[in-house]
Computed example of a mutant assay.
Amino acid sequence: MRALTPAEVLFDGEVQPAVLPPCDHYAGSEKLIRKSLALQVQLGPVFDVTLDCEDGAQVGQEAAHAELVASFIGGEDDRFGRVGVRIHDFQNRAWRDDVRIILRNAKKPPAYVTLPKIRSVFDAAEMVAFVEASRCELGIDAPIPCHLLIETHGALAEVFELAALPGVEALSFGLMDFVSAHNGAIPDTAMRSPGQFEHPLVRRAKLEIAAACHAHGKVASHNVSTEVRDMSVIANDAARARNEFGYTRMWSIHPAQIEPIVSAFSPRADEVAVAASILLAAQQAQWGPTRYQDTLHDRASYRYYWSVLRRAHATGRAMPAGADALFGPEASTRGS
């Protein structure tokens, strides 16, 4: 009899919480897109590349830019299928054309579609439904996940309802627009560190988004850091986002930011080793209670350690001996 995997026994028939690569790297111009895809080939699928139609397109050139973006998705430099796209927002008439052009012209579907400046559940639901209807119309087999950018008062007020929407895979915090929406009531120091982690209104927004994501099994993606010279700042921001606010993913806007973000969100080697040991013992015990170093474990702690292994897998970490079997007989060495 084949040994059952954690995914088969620990969630009582529910879908596992989503796990994504820990870095979401944005690129808008053709030059930056090419550079980002080349770096992804070099480092592997430990970060996603988001091709930006919102801020990347010149006014009046939206359709041409969407066609450019589409030409890279599924192309020879898209080796891992981890290239997504950010389209225009709901108030911009170009957003529907973005979806049609990209899904029609890309060689394969994007890994996800990011929807910016969501103002309400109504906005998000209509956009998600349009993406789904478009992929069905074009004969694309699998649903395309949507990521929502939470950067308005309306979106934050309805963040739990947004996280619950079918078709939504992740919520991202848009720090700059959120601070600007307060019309000077939040100082500009809250747009960077350490202020972004200290101002009460910004802290509240970060925590609400993370809590909503974890309540509904979605990925919480932390906002960008604007520092591009001192990578210790990026590493510290990523560590605080993970350890203090519960985020499992973070934006990047400069290639140098990618590796510190991936490192900060990756489980440590000792955490991975402990998780593998506990889960392999549990698998041998048919997922009944076990003891590890004089500590008792059951399905509640097994779910925690399974999340550690899944995050390690998503960041390209090599699994301890025997642990690959926990991902199933067809698991590859990367991703989950």
Rank of each mutant, 00 (worst) to 15 (best):
A215K: 09
F178W: 07
K206V: 05
K218Q: 12
A210F: 08
E161I: 10
F160I: 09
V168G: 03
P187G: 15
E161P: 05
C213W: 02
E208A: 15
A205E: 04
A185P: 07
F160R: 12
M176W: 14
S172T: 15
A157D: 10
G195K: 04
K206P: 00
A181P: 03
P187C: 13
K206E: 07
A164C: 12
A205H: 04
A163G: 08
E208L: 15
A185V: 11
A190M: 06
A170Q: 05
F178D: 00
G217C: 08
P194F: 06
E158G: 07
S172F: 05
G195F: 04
G167L: 01
G174Y: 02
A205Q: 04
V179A: 02
P166D: 14
E169M: 11
F160H: 13
H216P: 06
C213Q: 06
R192P: 02
S172I: 09
G195A: 09
S180R: 09
E198L: 08
H199E: 15
H214W: 09
L165S: 07
F173M: 11
I186W: 04
G167E: 06
N183Y: 15
D188S: 13
A164P: 08
A181M: 14
P166Y: 12
H199Q: 14
E198A: 14
E198H: 08
L175Q: 01
T189R: 07
E158Y: 08
A170E: 04
E161R: 12
A170D: 05
M191I: 01
N183G: 13
L207Y: 09
G184L: 04
D177P: 07
A212T: 06
L175M: 14
L207H: 11
F197L: 11
L201Q: 13
V179T: 05
R203Y: 04
G217S: 07
V159K: 01
A181R: 05
N183E: 15
Q196V: 05
L162W: 03
V179P: 02
H214M: 09
L162C: 10
H216M: 11
L201R: 10
E208G: 08
L201G: 05
L162T: 03
G217F: 01
T189K: 03
H216S: 10
I186P: 00
F173W: 06
A170P: 01
E198G: 04
V159P: 02
A210K: 02
F197S: 06
Q196F: 01
A212I: 06
